[in-house]
Amino acid sequence: MGGWILAVFKYAPEALEQSAQTIFGEHIMISLMPALCCILAFVGMMFYPLTDKRVKEISEQLNLKRNKVNCLSALNKLIFFH
């Protein structure tokens, strides 16, 4: 990925001095491009529906369900083995 973006800014592997354009590219790759990623992640997260409240509800409901299943299988064992 990094290599591709460098290539877009005409990075010259053989050259001793990179062009101003390439150096500008390197500069924004370490600053503004990651910043853009942060903004994307921020915006994406805005639409994420699993808030902590929701997560808590989900795990409570799951525990209820699991307990029910465990009780049933315990009951089954009792009936079958006694």
């Binding site: 990925m1 370490i30 491009m33 990651p34 990623c37």
Partner: peptide, 12 residues
């Protein structure tokens, strides 16, 4: 996006 952040930053 979060991992691209690290990948681009570190590789350059």
């Amino acid at each position: 996006a979060a991992l691209l952040f690290n990948a681009v930053r570190d590789s350059v």
